[in-house]
Structures are given as C-alpha cells and as structure tokens.
Design a protein around this nucleic acid. Structure first.
Length: 424
RNA sequence: GGAGAGGUGGCCGAGUGGUUGAAGGCGGCGGUCUUGAAAACCGUUGACCCGUAAGGGUCCGGGGGUUCGAAUCCCUCCCUCUCCGCCA
C-alpha cells in the first residue's frame, strides 16, 4: 500500500511511473486519494476540536461533583448534549472517509522503480544477462515428462487419482532428487547468512493481507472455509508476516530468512500447452529467501540477492538468463523484479525458476513493519524476497538438459546431496 | 468436541467509572562510580493522526452501547491459555 504522504509530495512523478504499468488513469487514482486525504484531515480537525471541548467540559463536571456543586455540574451537563451529537456525526463521517481512502489505496499497485521498462506483457521484459550455452540436443531428445516416466521418477496419473491434476507424485530417485535440491538450496542460503525458518503452511487473513495476496488475489489461494485459513502460495507470506506489527532494531539490518515450503496455487483458469509436466502445478516445492532492510540499502540488497541466485544456477550448470520485468509484467506489490529463467533444452523454451523483488515500503506499510531511525522516529522498512529456488522447473531443466543415452547425469554440486550421479 | 480462565505499552504485570496514556518490574537509552567492564545508584523511554509550531485528538483484542466522563459497566465478535476427550 502506498503512503499518502508520498503521494501528496510526488503525485506527478508517481503517476508517470505508474503509467509504466499500463495504468492509464493513474493520475486520477492518485488525485482521488489526495482528495480523500484532504477531506479526512479536515474532518479530523473538526472532530478533534469538538472532542477537545467535550473533554474539557467532562473534566469540569467531574471537578464540580467532587466539590459537591451538583447544581452547577448539571447545568454544564446540559451543554454536552449538542457536542455529543456533533461528535457522533463527525466520527461517522471520518470513518466513512477513512474506509474510502483505504479502499482507494488498496487498489493502486506499487510504483515501479525508474529502471522498470514500459511494456504490457512478458514480451517487453528486458533481458539483462544470458549465461551458459544452449545445449544442442538430438532430434529425439525427450521432454522431462517422458524422462520422468521412463525412469519412474514422477507419476502424474497417481497424483490425479489421489488429488487431481497438478499434484504430482515423486518416486524413488525423483523424490530423492527433490529432497537433495531442497537441502542443497537451504545450505547455500544458510552459507550466505540466511537463517532457516520452518513456518506454518496455512495462514490467516491478516497475513494474506500483509503481503498483498488479499484482498485482490483471493481466488489464487486455496481457502479452508471452516477455519478461514489459506494454504500458502509461497513462503514469502508466512516469513514476511513474521515481522508484521513489529518495530525492528535498526542494528539488526539486514534481516535474512530462508525457508523451504510447499507452495499451493489454484492457478484458476490456466490451461493450454504451457502446463504440461512440471511446468505449472497446484502444489510445488520452493525455497525462498526474504530480507528486511534499511530503505537506503534495499537496492544494494536486491543486487546481492540476484547474484546469490545466479551463483546457485551456475553451480547447477544450467544455462540461464536474467530478465528485468517490464511494467505490465511486474507484480502488484513490487517496485522492481528480476526473473531468472533456465533453458529447457527439449522443450526448447525458457522456464521461470526465480523471481527476486524489492517491495520497498509497499508491504511494510500494510504490515506496519518499522524500525527506529537516528532520530528515534519510526520509519517503514523495505522488504525483499526471491526464490532460491523453485524446484519443479529446475528438475525439468536438469532432466532435459542432462539426458544422455545412459541416463540423466546429476551436476557435481548436487551429487553429495543425491547420493547418486546418474538416474538410469 | 465438552468445561473454565484470560486478552493492558518492546516484554512481564497493576489497575473495576473521574484530571490515568496508564503504578511497579524487565529490557532499551543517557549519566554517576570504575583504569575498563560488571554491579549499584540517578535520570530517561508507547504507538498513531491533525498541526510549521504551540497544542489538540485517538488507542488498554475488534465492533457497538450505557454515561457529562470507560482500560474499568453492558452487548457482540475474534483470539489465546488451562483441564477433559481424541490423537501424530
């Protein structure tokens, strides 16, 4: 959620940058906010002075009663009726304006960083780096779903039987590969200074709101109606919400957490050719990194998170590229996002495996996540997160890119974790 | 699922209608003492909104009510804990 004070100060600039997202009426939306805020402040002033007056009278009446001057007290009492009436009306007005203001703010996305290129779709994302050779495969190279089938690694049909489409069953070396990747990622993140956390996989409404999944993206999460809990779509939600309503110590910056969790996504309405095999699932595994940082240092941190993820992909010997997301592809809450894609040789396409973002104060504002600055004033922190990494597409790329006549070879860095060098 | 207790500032905890935004303690910050540190002692220390400021207002789980006045009384919702039952 944007801060009204900032909108007031930089409306024109913000509108301009929001336009990068393809929002045509950005300036109108911001103007509505500013106007509501003006009404709010005006109404509050009125209300405050009425309340100040009644507080004064109440104290006088209290004093008079104590002195035993009941007569005078009762005279004063009569005066308060009118004030009460006024106050009630003003309170109601104030509440209603505040509601409208919140509603207006809730539907404005984060302001993109100046680096964010304009554009409407993933076509307009900016490739800022490409690394590794695209493997040239034989014509009969198999997509990962065939390899998974051949070596009995993943059973999609069994998943359908017990849950439904998008819930794969990993078996044997398939399951072990998953476990190896999770441990490997966690170890890499820990070595980079992230504290490992095991959070709950279900969260309450307040948490969904804090990171921005609610109220807009309600349909994308699984919801347990009886208990009003949501299955987490990413560890970002429980981890970032650890810091909800907190005033953290500025000396603790940067706060770095990592967590492995399954992720649940309804992906309502998705269908078509992109969803085959592991490409798009209702349940998948991911190791996430989250940081809470001082506003002055968050972009430095974003860069360090990007190079951290990059280091992992290099070790896994996967060809990858880094994209800077354009305005149209940028998530609602993000100010700047880098996506990582690995090349999947048999499908002959890039697959997104990580998304690293700086949310600046957008989440912190909803979370009320603050720190004390040098002047002991509370300021909003910056939050960042990234996948390090999401498993399924890494598995897909590993299987496809490393297939040989003898089987699928495991990258060196991973062998200590899998305990085998070859899937055959 | 059944029964009971409770939700107060960063934390613990007192407070049952009046000038209490809230005793006390812990923690934090500053100081005295010390070669330095610890201990001890003294002082200081809530959040949010409006206002250039002075100042004003709101907040004791959320919402509503009673009252001139509510952390304190009433209604309602939410949450937590304890015991019993069930159970990895």
């Amino acid at each position: 959620m944007l801060q009204v004070s900032q909108i007031r100060e930089n409306q024109a600039q913000m509108a301009e940058r929001l336009a990068v997202r393809g929002i045509k009426n950005a300036n109108e939306l911001l103007t509505a906010v500013v106007e509501l805020d003006e009404q709010r402040r005006h109404t509050q002033q009125e209300s405050d002075s009425v309340l100040a007056e009644s507080n004064k009278l109440a104290k006088e009446i209290g004093g008079l009663f104590k002195e035993g001057k009941a007569q005078e007290a009762n005279t004063l009492k009569a005066q308060t009726a009118d004030l009460k009436e006024q106050s009630k009306g003003l309170q109601e007005k104030l509440h209603s304006i505040e509601e409208q203001l919140k509603e207006a703010l809730l539907h404005i996305p984060n302001v993109p960083n100046p680096l964010v290129p304009a554009g409407n779709s993933d076509e307009d994302n900016e490739v800022i780096k490409e690394h590794g050779d695209i493997p040239s495969m034989d014509a009969d190279a198999k997509p990962h779903w065939d390899i998974a089938d051949q070596y009995n690694l993943i059973d999609f049909e069994l998943g359908v039987k017990i849950s439904g489409a998008g819930f794969p069953v990993y078996k044997g070396k398939g399951a072990r590969l998953q476990r190896a990747l999770i441990n490997y990622f966690l170890d890499k993140n820990m070595a980079a200074g992230y504290e490992e956390i095991q959070p709950p996989h279900f969260v309450n409404e307040a948490s969904g709101f804090g990171t921005g999944q609610l109220p807009d993206k309600e349909g994308q999460m699984y919801h347990m109606q009886d208990d009003n809990l949501y299955a987490i779509p990413t560890a970002e939600v429980p981890i970032t919400n650890l810091f909800r309503d907190e005033i953290v110590n500025a000396d603790d910056f940067p706060i770095k957490c990592t967590a492995y969790t399954p992720c649940f996504r309804r992906e309502a309405g998705s269908y078509g050719k992109d969803v085959r095999g592991l490409n798009r699932l209702h349940q998948f595994d991911k190791v996430e990194i989250v940081q809470v940082q001082h506003p002055d240092k968050s972009y430095e941190t974003l860069d360090s998170m990007v190079s951290h993820v990059e280091g992992i992909l290099k070790e896994l010997e996967l060809p990858y590229r880094i994209l800077r997301l354009c305005g149209g592809d940028l998530g609602f809450t993000s100010a700047l996002t880098y996506d990582f894609e690995v090349y999947s040789a048999a499908q002959k396409r890039w697959l997104e495996v990580s998304s690293v973002s700086n949310f600046e104060t957008f989440q912190a504002n909803r979370l009320k996540l603050r720190y004390k600055d040098e002047n002991k004033k509370n300021q909003l922190c910056h939050t960042l997160n990234g996948s390090a990494l999401a498993l399924p597409r890494i598995v897909a790329a590993l299987l496809e890119n490393n297939q040989t006549a003898n089987g699928v070879s495991i990258p060196k860095a991973l062998v200590p974790y899998t305990g085998f060098e070859l899937i055959n």
